[in-house]
Write a protein that binds this DNA or RNA. Structure first.
Length: 211
DNA sequence: TCATTAACACGGG
DNA sequence: CCCGTGTTAATGA
């Protein structure tokens, strides 16, 4: 599909015309499949991703190499760490994996600064930074203050939002890896949630009820 | 008390 | 048979 059509169809409600035109000339359209790596720790950022459709999950890796999920990024948004890295010219401190098949618009990283004279771009960048900051705080709260029970429930609800579906194709083991705990714990908590009528368990699938 | 690890049984594909 | 799931027992933080 033509770039300018793509940009206009998806972002005309966000950005002014001049910016949309510039975007069309430099953006690259990319499709990623579920579970595809977008970014790994230490990798240099060369672009910022604008998400047209789908969702991306973002992980932090600790010193032992264990991953913790931070948040999901959904359509019409971008990743805060890209904004950070652009300014510092640094390398990625996070890991990003496609949660679902997704369509992205890749913007060369230096454009982030070049476009700051556009009012709509400033709003978008700062707004997105704000969103990511809130979600980061939630992630900190989740790790520091919530018990595993609440963390699992938050994880499931965030995942429902990211996937736009109450039917989550996932195994207990995968959840335990993303939350960095053991499968025994996840199985027990999920069973309890099922008894409390919050979810229904199936093989390779969890249905979230009353969302 | 609650998480982890290992171990085992059950069942569906 | 292999894998996901449910559960228990032992151990530790």
């Amino acid at each position: 599909m033509d770039n300018s059509v793509l940009v206009n169809e998806n972002f005309s409600f966000l950005f002014e015309k001049d910016l949309l035109n510039e975007m069309a000339t430099v953006a690259r359209y990319k499709i990623v499949k579920k579970d595809e790596f977008l970014m790994d720790i230490g990798q240099e950022m060369t672009f910022m991703p604008l998400i047209i459709s789908g969702a991306i999950k973002v992980f932090r890796t600790d010193n032992d190499g264990d991953d913790y999920i931070l948040y999901f990024i959904e359509g019409g948004d971008t990743c805060a760490m890209t904004l950070n890295c652009c300014i510092k010219g640094a390398k990625s401190e996070i890991k990003a994996i496609a949660e679902t098949d997704s369509e992205l618009l890749l913007i060369p990283i230096h454009k982030l600064e070049d476009w700051l004279h556009f009012k709509s771009w400033r709003s978008f960048v700062f707004g997105s930074y704000n969103n990511r900051f809130s979600e980061m705080l939630e992630a900190v709260d989740s790790l520091a203050f919530m018990n595993m029970n609440a963390r699992v429930l938050k994880y499931l609800k965030d995942k429902v939002l990211a996937n736009k579906s109450e039917f989550l194709e996932i195994t207990h083991n995968t959840i335990s890896l993303e939350l960095n705990t053991s499968r025994v714990v996840i199985s027990r908590i999920l069973k309890k949630l099922e008894i409390d009528n919050q979810i229904k368990l199936h093989r390779n699938q969890i249905e979230v009820i009353n969302f």
